[in-house]
Design a protein around this nucleic acid. Structure first.
Length: 299
DNA sequence: ACATGACCCTGTGAGC
DNA sequence: TGCTCACAGGGTCATG
């Protein structure tokens, strides 16, 4: 499901509600997703305070001040179909309460209290169970095992520089699609945004990374953050099951020019004579592109 | 080093 | 109305 813009949107939504709140109760409805849940997850989280939410790559991180001496960070990865959903309690006259929604595949539930309201519910819902929930001591990010060998943040201008991009590209002959999907160079890009970025940069997805011209590299450097920021502005892309933490769908799917549009006319080919959006398979994933706009040319 | 395919899962939609 | 198949925002592992 979620690429960087979706995780960023969810993180911001949760942060607006959860920062400084107190976790009362944690319920684990199973023992694992892609990885086993940490043995001490429930014990550490209950009766702790949420300090901060942040994002690194496609991971959503929640820093907590625990009741013990050390502070901890919960790490969520949403895999393909994971959601983090907020529900507010509905009170009856006798002050008992319930929630309107009842989710299937609800694997992890956390109840928290803010200054305004008690018993707000956060549910981790993930039908395919490709996600991860993990727990680390906050202080030493170098020890987060999920962060081993991951690359730079594309929205950080100090990190995604022309020199960095150019150097990494020059070191690999992989197709540019594979390069951009590979989290060891630049994090956060997934299948949708790589297709959209390459289309707007007019670069054929099978071009060897090391063959890109200076102008093409400059174009990529511009479109990577541009597309991601546009998508964040639209609240991410909803294809089937992605929703923001409040249940709202994203809007960027309306702005997809190639992703999921096989056979449609290319929006950039004014003549209408091109063969239209074409789908090929790369790295086991569908690539959508326009062969007229994104010509294959080795330089 | 790198491409590929299998695998982890459930759900959905198309085609018959 | 069912069934079968292909495919789905990701990541990891074995194999060639």
């Amino acid at each position: 499901m979620p690429e960087l813009p979706e995780v960023e949107t969810i993180m911001r939504g949760l942060a607006s509600i959860m920062v400084k709140s107190h976790i009362s109760t944690v319920i684990l409805n199973r023992a694992n997703l892609r990885k086993d849940f940490p043995k001490n997850l429930k014990e550490i989280l209950e009766n702790s305070q949420i300090q901060r939410l942040r994002r690194r790559a496609k991971y959503l991180l929640c820093d907590i001040k625990s009741k013990y001496s050390e502070n901890w960070t919960i790490l969520f990865h949403l895999g393909m179909s994971g959601r983090l959903l907020i529900d507010y309690p509905i009170y009856r006259e006798d002050s008992s309460f319930h929630y309107q929604n009842n989710y299937k595949h609800n694997h992890f539930v956390l109840f928290f209290d803010t200054q305004e309201q008690k018993n707000i519910r956060l549910s981790y819902v993930d039908p395919r169970r490709f996600g991860v929930i993990d727990l680390y001591k906050t202080e030493n990010e170098a020890l987060y095992s999920s962060f081993k060998n991951i690359g730079i943040e594309p929205l950080n201008k100090q990190e995604l520089t022309y020199d960095y991009l150019s150097k990494k590209l020059s070191q690999t002959k992989s197709p540019i699609k594979n390069f951009l999907l590979n989290q060891k160079y630049i994090v956060g890009l997934g299948n949708i945004y790589v297709c959209e970025i390459l289309f707007r940069a007019k670069i054929h997805p099978q071009r060897a990374s090391s063959s890109l011209t200076i102008n093409e590299k400059k174009t990529l450097l511009k479109f990577i953050p541009d597309i991601l920021n546009q998508a964040i502005g639209a609240g991410g892309s909803t294809l089937r099951d992605y929703v923001q933490s409040d249940g709202e769908k994203g809007g960027f799917q309306e702005l997809h020019q190639v992703y999921g549009r096989e056979g449609e006319a290319c929006p950039a080919c004014k003549t209408g004579k091109c063969q239209g959006i074409t789908r090929i398979i790369q790295a086991g994933r569908s690539t959508f592109f326009c062969p007229s706009q994104q010509k294959y040319k080795e330089n």
